[in-house]
Amino acid sequence: MNTLTISENLYNHYESTAEIKHYYGLLANYALVLTAEANQNKELLTRCKNIMRKFPNQIEHPNYNFPSYKIGGIPKAYMFMKGYLPEAESEIRDYADEMMTAVRDDKGIVTTLFDQEKKLIWIDAAMATTPFLLFAGLGLKEEKYIDEAVNQAFLMYEEFFDEKIGLLHQCKNFVGEGLYSQDHWSRGNGWGYFALTELVKHLPKQSPHRKKAEKYFIQLSNALLPHQSKRGLWRQEIPLEYSYEESSGTGLILYGLGTGLRLGLLEFEAYNNAFHKGIRGLNDICINEDFSTEQSCPGCLCPGEEEEKGTVKAYVTLKLPYKDEPHSFGPFMLALAEAYQNGIIDLNRLYKG
């Protein structure tokens, strides 16, 4: 089946199960735009415009840690940048300004809105801040937004980087003051990788930030590559051989690998087979015939209680995957849209290869 057809059908299935509005839903909306762009599907692009025009007034919003979700977050900013939604200019500017003044820790990393005195920081925020500010800055031609998009990605990468293994921890101060979670969580590393992927994908060639963005992107790519399973996936606790294979992090990692290959940042011989194996594994193991999904970890912010809080054991045993877990759809769609861009048009042909 065509990879873009699978991507669109994943969104259709997701839409049939829930109202798409949370951050993981907005990521699926962003992936739907990329799916439409990949083969210049005008009908699908019109659908994306109509979806985004429902934000904020036709959606009943829950409480968000990042208010930009209210107007459509990443996909709204991206579609404005690309000229699809010029009427969104004032919304994008207002919420970019709000993000510029959001609460930060002493190093300048955005913190959670609750328990602000504890300066709780987590790598998931790289997904929320960097792409939105990057697209806002490029669309509005405001360097201050671009600079802060880069700043958040770099600060979080540096803060959560584990020098021993080259992977990222998820969070700090949730276990106790100055303490990091012990994990190298699949989707957490995927969130950090996603932010770096958007930087290398969209920063202008002349940007003073490009060299460092490429350096960090390649470093994390190199750290992730050796941990791919025999079936093509990455695990919930990435370096732990006995941890379950986790699909949402896998989708984000594959999106980054495909982008790096296409941009010539990653060596073809080292990464191409891994990318193809991953796309095959994602399709075979994690996508059912009805386009429901499998193997995705549920919400997972420093799990556990007391002495087990934030431990590898808590990440692996307390947060178990289930069918149609909502974080899965966006990462799967991103990986498939990028597969198409890398010439994987028909998965049947991939199998024959």
Rank of each mutant, 00 (worst) to 15 (best):
G310A: 00
K277S: 12
N273A: 08
T250D: 12
F275K: 07
V316R: 13
G256K: 01
P303V: 06
P298D: 09
C302F: 09
L252N: 11
S296H: 03
G249V: 00
G304M: 05
Y271G: 01
S292R: 14
C297P: 12
E267K: 08
Q295W: 15
L254I: 08
G281Q: 04
D290L: 13
S248W: 10
G278Q: 09
D284N: 14
A274H: 11
T250H: 14
P239L: 07
E307P: 11
R280P: 00
R280E: 14
T250Y: 14
P298C: 13
I287Y: 07
G251I: 04
P303R: 01
G304H: 04
Y255F: 15
K313D: 08
G256T: 07
L252D: 03
Y244F: 13
K309M: 09
P239M: 04
L257A: 04
P303N: 09
F275G: 10
E245T: 13
I253K: 10
I279G: 03
F291G: 02
E269D: 14
E308M: 10
E305S: 09
Y244H: 08
E305R: 14
E294Q: 15
K313R: 13
I253E: 04
L261D: 00
L240E: 14
Y244R: 08
G310I: 00
K277V: 01
E246S: 14
K309S: 06
E305C: 06
Q295R: 15
N283G: 06
E246V: 08
T259V: 05
R280L: 11
I279E: 01
L263Y: 02
H276P: 00
C300L: 13
S296A: 15
E305D: 13
G281P: 07
V316H: 08
L240T: 05
L282E: 03
R262E: 09
S247K: 07
E289M: 12
G260K: 03
S247Q: 03
L261K: 07
T311I: 08
L265A: 07
N273R: 12
E308Y: 12
L261T: 01
L261M: 03
V312T: 10
I287E: 01
E267Q: 09
T293P: 03
S247V: 09
R280Y: 10
L257V: 10
G278D: 06
F291S: 05
S292K: 09
T259H: 02
L265C: 05
C286T: 15
C302L: 00
P303C: 11
P239H: 10
A270R: 08
E245R: 08
F268G: 00
I287C: 04
E289Q: 15
T259D: 08
S292Y: 06
G281A: 09
E308Q: 14
Y255V: 04
G251S: 10
A274L: 01
E269L: 04
T259I: 06
G310N: 02
V312N: 04
G304V: 08
G264C: 00
G249F: 14
S292A: 13
Y255A: 13
L263S: 03
E306Y: 14
G304N: 10
I253R: 09
N273E: 12
L240H: 10
H276Y: 06
G299L: 13
S243H: 05
N272H: 12
K309R: 13
C302G: 01
T293M: 02
I285K: 11
E308D: 12
N288I: 03
R262V: 02
N273F: 04
S243A: 13
